[in-house]
Write a protein that binds this DNA or RNA. Structure first.
Lengths: 150, 150
DNA sequence: AAAACTGTAACTTTTTTTATTACTAAATAA
DNA sequence: TTATTTAGTAATAAAAAAAGTTACAGTTTT
């Protein structure tokens, strides 16, 4: 009897690409430039010099947000599912789960120290304001605007 | 004959702490709270739950910018060298070499693709504007303001 | 002279990111 | 109807980055 892998993944493992926003914007710009074609992950990966599997993972996220659609099989690929003039970079920003900020120390600070106890909370307030300002900025740039620069 | 290490380091190796800004702000807040004491790296590390050597490395950077001073030897440590009401978080931001942004894809994009060729340049323009807005925000917060929250 | 610090080099370990391999499923075209 | 191309995704491996550790020279203070 042949053992067949059951094609199930219990461990939810998702590569956390460091530049998710940059990668998503790159993908979306390409799709905007070729609005009538289904672009393959291989082609997109070629423009980004990135592994095609990682491109497909990012596309999976964009698909979950219904801004692109894919077609499997020969001549398959991905194309834009929305109007580039209607999609703002703020929406892309939110889809990539990214947050602006200047980081937190990795370890949990000492709760017995008055500073340690509240440092992350106070930094969070500072960073929240940053996010608000950045969101306003990104809300003014549509994918069409951004793509028109190329 | 005993071999003695020559106390020279040719390879410039500097741990690139991910939350340099957060760590520096934490250190500076502690120094502001205890303006009359030289705080040891051990003490600071205890509040941050971080290795003392890493604290000393961050302090080295702050020293290079002349905003703190250290004293070696017994009862030594670090204290603020400037007025907390004169130092803004924008200055700290700049000292930690941090830049706001949403990242770049790690690999160099394909220069033969019109999008790959210009993607980083166009993202940089976007990010530059973000930095400007964030700088304006941080310029309004002094170390004294921030520390007063604790 | 002992003790308590800073400063910093040289590793080591851990964690995070990125890449690869492998295979299922789907769609197309010859 | 069969070969081919493509998406989707699991599992693993490799590479890179971050954090931690050890060790010790040099400084002050007591």
């Amino acid at each position: 009897m042949l053992y067949k892998t059951p094609y199930i993944c219990n461990i939810i493992y998702y590569s956390m690409l460091s530049g998710k926003f940059a990668i998503s914007v790159h993908i979306l710009t390409l799709l905007t430039k070729f609005p009538n074609d289904y672009l393959s992950s291989e082609f997109i990966a070629g423009s980004m010099n990135l592994n095609p599997v990682l491109v497909r993972k990012e596309i999976a996220n964009l698909k979950a947000h219904h801004i692109v659609e894919s077609k499997e099989g020969k001549n398959g690929g991905t194309k834009l599912a929305v109007d580039a003039s209607k999609l703002t970079l703020k929406e892309v920003f939110e889809m990539t789960f990214e947050k602006i900020g200047l980081g937190y120390a990795k370890n949990q600070p000492n709760p017995d120290c008055p500073v340690g106890k509240k440092i992350n909370e106070n930094l969070a307030v500072l960073y929240a304001e940053m996010n608000q300002k950045v969101s306003l900025q990104l809300n003014d740039v549509t994918l069409e605007d951004f793509s028109a620069q190329f």
